[in-house]
């Protein structure tokens, strides 16, 4: 009988990645450029982990060569430790994951003291995602992270659907979103990426407001608000009743939002929402994203990021293209 042995899991057809994780995968094939630029940051390739699905990097070190990522994006940091929401925090829905983590994180000080030294050893830019309960907290987080060596950009989370104070409140009112953006910009020399929620009537209004307030780039989408009910107990599947939906189920919505925002603002976009394979990632690039982030796919296949990078390269080679930048916004209508 054939030995299953220590071969890396070969992904089942059509599933996350589609290409087996090979840690010895050669650097980008000669003659093919995967590098892109976002808000002054040079990314060796356009593939990033999505905040909150990649911990603080170390969790994925057994599966992902962190130095091969376009950038490293860590879980949202708040000024003070945040305990998070009561369990159950997760439930699966058709092709989707509904979560209500509630931004559980050890807080700014522990992050700087215990997580940052580990993260500094990697070469890709480090993007730290932040959330405050007040505009003042966003400003303070920006100031203090700018002083901590090793942080290359801030991603401002004004779109978390799972916290009572702050979070999505800032992301749904354009004037508030602009004030948060301006406060962060005023307190940091670092590039500022603002992460948008799809839970609004018109995402382009918020996009325009934060760009006018100084955002250097936008990332979208955060999760879509949703819920699930256990009909046997008649109770909500999540302890906090409402959660955020991610995974393949949200991809069409995410792609549509990216496409619309790309036609509205000039700053680069990091597109995300349901990307499981390199093919999915390419759809986002064609819709106008300069880079993509991968969240739920990593939870399913911890090697997904590597597989997607390799898949992009294969796509360029197959298509006889030399530069991934030729795909950005190249949708033909």
């Amino acid at each position: 009988m054939e030995q299953a042995g220590n071969r890396p899991a070969v992904n089942l057809k059509g599933q996350a990645g589609g290409v087996p994780f090979n840690p010895h995968h050669q650097e980008t094939a000669p003659g093919v450029n995967l590098a892109v630029e976002i808000a002054g940051l040079r990314l060796a390739n356009p593939v990033l982990p999505a905040s909150g699905t990649f911990g603080f990097g170390a969790e994925y070190a057994p599966f992902v060569e962190l130095n091969r990522l376009g950038a490293i994006v860590v879980k949202t940091i708040t000024l003070h430790p945040t305990p998070g929401n009561p369990p159950p925090r997760l439930t699966e829905t058709y092709s989707g994951l509904l979560n209500s983590i509630g931004l559980q994180n050890p807080g700014l000080e522990v992050f700087i003291r215990e997580k940052l030294p580990y993260l500094r050893q990697f070469t890709p830019p480090l993007i730290v995602n932040i959330a405050g309960r007040t505009i003042g907290e966003y400003a303070e987080l920006a100031a203090r992270l700018s002083e901590a060596a090793g942080v290359d950009a801030l991603e401002v989370n004004i779109s978390c659907p799972n916290v009572r104070e702050g979070g999505i409140v800032f992301g749904t009112v354009p004037a508030m979103a602009a004030r948060v953006t301006a406060a962060v910009k005023g307190n940091t020399p670092l590039p500022v990426i603002v992460k948008l929620t799809p839970n609004v009537t018109d995402i382009t209004v918020v996009a325009r407001a934060v760009v006018e307030a100084g955002a250097d780039a936008l990332s979208l989408i955060n999760t879509l608000q949703g819920m699930a009910i256990d009909i046997d107990t008649r109770r909500p599947a999540l302890a906090s009743v409402v959660g955020g939906l991610s995974g393949p189920a949200v991809k069409p919505v995410a792609l549509y939002n990216v496409w619309r925002v790309a036609r509205t603002v000039k700053v680069p976009l990091i597109g995300m929402g349901g990307i499981m394979t390199a093919r999915d990632a390419i759809e986002f690039l064609l819709a106008g994203a300069t880079a993509v982030a991968v969240g739920t796919a990593s939870l399913v296949n911890p090697g997904a990021l590597m597989a997607i990078i390799a898949g992009l390269e294969d796509y360029l080679l197959d298509q006889g293209l030399a530069d991934i930048r030729d795909l950005i916004g190249a949708l033909e209508i």
Binding site: G55, E59, P87
Partner: peptide, 17 residues
């Protein structure tokens, strides 16, 4: 037992008090 997504400590989804 708790509902899990990653099983690797990354998502903070499977907590107990």
């Amino acid at each position: 037992e708790e509902h899990m997504a990653c099983g690797t400590g990354a998502c903070k989804g499977c907590v107990c008090k």
